[in-house]
Amino acid sequence: MLSRRKTYAGRIKHPDDATEPATLDPLSAIAPLFRARPEIQDVCRFALQWEVVHEAEPAGFAQFHIVTNGNCLLERYSGETFKLEAGSILLLPQGDSHVVRSASRGGSTGAPIRTEYNNAIRIKTNTRGASDTELICGRLRLDGAMYSLVTAALPKAIVLSIGRGELFDRMRMLVQAIDEELQAARPGAATIATELATALFVMMLRLHFEQSASSSGILRLLASSSSARAVTAMLRAPAHPWTLDELAAEAHVSRATLVRIFRREGDIPPLGLLSQLRLGLARHRLGSTTETLAQVAAAVGYDNESAFARAFRKRYGISPGGLRARHEGRSREENSPDSIIGGVTLGLSSAARAQQADIEAS
């Protein structure tokens, strides 16, 4: 009995212990949660002047464009413009509406864009000869929890420069393999394509983290093994009535240590992040399902629909019913306001952080 007690005691992390568990890299911490359903939409081949409008995708979709030859411009309706060259990948984690067009507006006007099919592959082109610019365009569908995490950790638009070397070839091979699996429709194709798309998305994220000067608070939380365990527990079971004690147990640290790590790395208390992830997931379900408001509330951990509505309005400035009506009635050409459709962001107001800290300290 004594030896059993010693073994159990040895697993307890004292609040004053200075040593923290070894760190994990952020992608390894969250990769098991990635499930991306791919769709290669178009292979584009253009010459001279051209322009293609891409409408906003429903909640839960990330769009990407891979430039395989030439160059072009991508313009978001917010006013941002990105110049893309061969070897560039542009990722839109929230699937915002945008326009892709030729890099120069001067010169000869190209022929109208037409759609062709080659062995069931959809091709958009405006030339019957050589093309100046070629792109592969597609989208990834993320499940609700993953979408909530992605929009929390990533900006609305990411440009990756992979050049024309080995990395470019590897990514292009992945895209081609996904397309071939989906077109052939052989047994197991959906599973294989999903795993390949997951690999492609993780490679995109890894390159973004390597090229980005700084990382978001949630990525810093995922870089610490203790807080990463707590975050992944929230994402795996967002509707569970988590307490600070339970999250600390998942993280293998004390309550005080967990709060300290979250404050230091994310500037947010653990239960504050849980609330944001739940509301982000609720926003996703409101835009992508026909569930009733009560069902959405229950799915993200709210027993009381009124409490859910109050929290949602406080976070996004609109009621759940109002957002549902906006999704249903909004034209697809309209751009979604950042305050409503934007990703979950880390950080609470000073008053909210103080209120959450009082709750957790009790």
Rank of each mutant, 00 (worst) to 15 (best):
A223F: 08
E210I: 10
S227L: 06
S212D: 05
S225V: 07
A233F: 02
S226Y: 06
A223D: 12
L205K: 00
M203C: 13
T232E: 02
A228S: 12
H208R: 06
Q211F: 04
V202S: 09
S224C: 13
M204K: 04
S225N: 12
S212M: 03
H208T: 08
F209D: 02
I218F: 08
S226K: 04
S215M: 09
S227V: 05
V202I: 15
G217L: 02
A213S: 14
S215W: 15
L221C: 06
F209T: 01
R220N: 10
S216N: 01
M204R: 05
S227Y: 04
S224D: 14
S212C: 02
A233T: 03
A213N: 13
A230E: 07
S216T: 03
V231I: 15
A233I: 08
A223L: 00
L219T: 10
L222A: 10
R229D: 11
R229P: 10
G217T: 04
S225T: 13
S226D: 11
A223I: 06
S224I: 04
V202A: 14
T232I: 15
A233D: 01
S216K: 01
S216D: 04
L205S: 05
T232F: 05
V231S: 07
G217M: 09
L221M: 09
R220F: 06
T232K: 11
S227K: 03
L221K: 03
A213W: 03
R229L: 13
S212N: 08
L207M: 15
M203A: 15
A223P: 08
R206H: 14
L207V: 15
L222K: 09
S214Y: 04
A233H: 09
V231K: 02
S227M: 02
R206A: 15
L219A: 03
R229Q: 14
V231Y: 01
A228E: 00
G217C: 10
S215C: 10
S224F: 09
H208N: 10
S215R: 14
L222H: 07
S224R: 14
M204E: 10
H208K: 03
A233M: 06
V231M: 08
T232G: 02
Q211E: 15
L222W: 08
A213C: 07
L221D: 06
R220G: 00
A230W: 11
L222F: 09
S214N: 07
E210P: 00
L222D: 08
I218P: 03
L207D: 15
R220P: 08
R206T: 13
S216P: 02
S212W: 00
F209W: 12
L205M: 09
V231Q: 03
S214D: 10
R220C: 01
Q211L: 11
L222G: 11
F209C: 04
F209G: 02
R206P: 06
Q211S: 13
H208G: 05
T232A: 05
I218L: 11
T232M: 12
E210F: 01
S215N: 12
A228I: 02
M203H: 14
S216G: 13
